[in-house]
Write a protein that binds this DNA or RNA. Sequence first.
RNA 1: UCCGCGGUAGCUCAGCGGUAGAGCAGUUCCCUGUUAAGGAAUUGGUCGUAGGUUCGAUCCCUACCCGCGGAG
Length: 436
Amino acid sequence: MSFSFEITNKSSEAPLARAGIIHTPHGDIHTPAFVTVGTKATVKALTVEQVRDYVGAQAVLANTYHLYLEPGDEIVAKHGGFPKMMGWMQRGETRDNRQETTENAGNDMCPLPSFTDSGGFQVFSLGQALGHGVSKIATSQEISDAEAALSKRDEEQLARESVHEKLAHIDEDGVTFKSVIDGSEHRFTPERSMQIQHNLGADIFFAFDECTSPLAPIAYQKEAMERTHRWAKRSLDEHKRLGVSSATGEMQALFGVVQGGAYEDLRRESARTLGAMDFDGYGIGGSFTKDDMATAVRWVCEELPESKPRHLLGIGEPLDMLLAIEYGIDTFDCVAPTRIGRNGSIYTLDGRINITNATYKDDLSPLSEDPSWYTHHYTKSYVSHLFRADEMLAGTLASIHNLKFLTTLVDDARQALIEGRFVEFKESFIKRYYKK
RNA sequence: UCCGCGGUAGCUCAGCGGUAGAGCAGUUCCCUGUUAAGGAAUUGGUCGUAGGUUCGAUCCCUACCCGCGGAG
């Protein structure tokens, strides 16, 4: 079965919102859907059975840069792609109940839907962001402060900034990365990213782009966006030249990545430019303002072709997701649930809590309210203890809970959308979660 | 019983004639296409007890108490 997307329901309440099904060679993704991040072909701290059965994840997204560095995309290709390598399989085909020799391990298993990111985010995270504590989301205050600082920037300031050695350097043709493992240099171009992602074998993969800093000046946002558009064309051409995946022998779906930062004219231009290209779907990447990300999402979705799926890259804050669904987003991925989970933060319907707070030391209420969730059977007190005792299970249980929370949130939003009560669902969730 | 060493934050320790610090723990916050089991802030102490010397003692002196080691 090849790749396709069908919209099954459109919302009468929200003109851009839709529910649908992404058909991949390895199964369907019911959208809107939250995609679990497994950067190095592992969802940190979790087994694939936990991801599939306890979280109920529909798809996993891995990373090109990280898998290229280790174990290397050639080795991943030998496994038949990263989903097979990590055992991201349909039920009944997991490692523990297969009866095979090690000789053909994985060869007759059917993986579940998968994505790879192109390495475009590392252009930012190992470049501008490195050592500055900048995220791709900034408040409008931070953005205007950065603009003000730009006009009175002197040489001393520039020297101070350059103290942080970047691990990514951009030019027109591509990006030179330094390995985060051993410092060795590696060259990424759109073509190279496509070749690697063909070896990684995901059902859906992304064009090589440049994720810009939200604090970069508008002139640079425009320059980077236009370069990303040229890279998008090169990505598409290389994908067509390569044909089927070298790992799976199957056709992969390529998504272009919309850029343009927080600026309406750039966002719309980027969506129109890429929308006119022959991509299978679109990622919406780059930086956003924290105060009003949804508006930027709306600009983009108003311009993109309606019939193709839209993935909002790296967004997972509950409010952001609900508004993005309202404005036409189909899929999300985000590291937040696993990362904040490993660091002791837990989503609840009443907002985020830090489970290590003293108040939870003797709180015997369940970690998860819903009795059907795996993590219902652990008390907050116990999980708090696991964190204090620095036990590995703490990160595992918190990750399962947080992933289940966000996956359920998006699943419930989908159901509400199908049943024509999306706005009510969204507002009631927000009212309780954010106390607004 | 004698000799030696040591008693400083909850713990392990630094310091030194001008009334105190570190790491960890504690408390709290942060994390949005993972360089992240990561990062940041912050609360704790009449420096074993009682005297003495000194303008001034956690620091020097004396006694006592407690711990460790050695001798007998």
